[in-house]
């Protein structure tokens, strides 16, 4: 049934669906990485390559 439905679906709205999904991911990640407490963690993690040999 789903297969049939998709087969006949002309999908003009897909670029829009994609855009909305991407915007959600992008805004989500920006907010997530900007949350309180992240800075300290990121400062520490970003120094990892410099530790050790």
């Amino acid at each position: 049934m789903i297969k049939e439905a998709l087969s006949f679906f002309p999908m003009p709205q897909l670029p829009l669906v994609g855009l909305i999904l991407f915007a959600a991911v992008f805004i989500g990640v920006v907010l997530w990485t900007g949350r309180g407490g992240a800075k300290k963690l990121y400062d520490r993690t970003s120094r990892q390559p410099l530790d050790g040999e």
């Binding site: 999904l21 991407f22 991911v25 992008f26 990640v29 920006v30 990485t33 900007g34 992240a38 800075k39 990121y42 400062d43 993690t45 970003s46």
Partner: peptide
Amino acid sequence: YRLSVIHFWTLVF
């Protein structure tokens, strides 16, 4: 580092 996290998820997506 924050930009690198944003870079990763947006690029992969």
